[in-house]
Amino acid sequence: MDCTNPKTLTNTLKLLEEEGLVHREVVAGRPPGVRYDLTASGRVLTERIYPLWKWASDRAG
């Protein structure tokens, strides 16, 4: 997945929001901005996935 593409990143963030893993907040300003934070479910998932990622990363060299 190429998340460097703005459209791909936007679609991925929308999906994560729909799944309840991130919270989206519009921030007032010029220009307006958007802030994303992990939800409680997102933090739990991160805690569960990190050991698997670390294991795979260690073996990749």
Rank of each mutant, 00 (worst) to 15 (best):
L16S: 03
N11Q: 08
R43I: 12
R48Y: 04
S57Q: 13
T12C: 13
G29H: 13
L13I: 00
N11I: 00
M1L: 11
G20C: 04
T46P: 09
D58Y: 04
C3G: 00
R35E: 13
A40H: 08
A56Y: 13
H23R: 14
G42V: 05
T8C: 05
P6G: 13
M1R: 07
R48W: 12
N11V: 03
W55N: 05
K7V: 05
M1W: 08
L45S: 11
Y50H: 06
T39A: 08
L9N: 08
V27L: 08
V26I: 12
R59W: 05
L9P: 06
L52N: 03
G33P: 04
V27R: 12
V44L: 14
T4G: 09
G61S: 03
P32I: 01
G29A: 05
I49Y: 15
P51N: 03
L45Q: 07
E19C: 04
D37F: 13
V26S: 15
A28D: 14
G20F: 01
S57Y: 15
N5K: 13
W55M: 06
E18Y: 08
E47N: 07
D2L: 11
L16H: 07
T39E: 02
G42H: 07
D58L: 09
N5Y: 06
H23P: 01
E19Y: 02
Y36S: 02
G42R: 03
W55Q: 10
R48S: 10
R30Q: 12
W55V: 03
P32E: 06
E47L: 06
N5F: 03
E17M: 05
A40F: 12
E25I: 00
W55D: 09
P32Y: 09
T39V: 04
T8N: 15
A40I: 07
V44R: 15
V26R: 10
R35K: 09
R35P: 00
E17A: 14
Y50F: 07
R43F: 07
H23K: 15
T12W: 11
P51I: 00
K54C: 05
E19P: 01
K54A: 13
L38I: 00
Y36E: 03
P6Y: 12
H23D: 08
Y50V: 06
V34L: 12
P32S: 07
L15S: 14
V22H: 10
R24C: 09
R24A: 06
V44N: 13
W55P: 01
V26M: 04
P51E: 02
N5G: 06
I49F: 10
K54T: 03
E47S: 04
V34G: 10
S41E: 15
E25P: 01
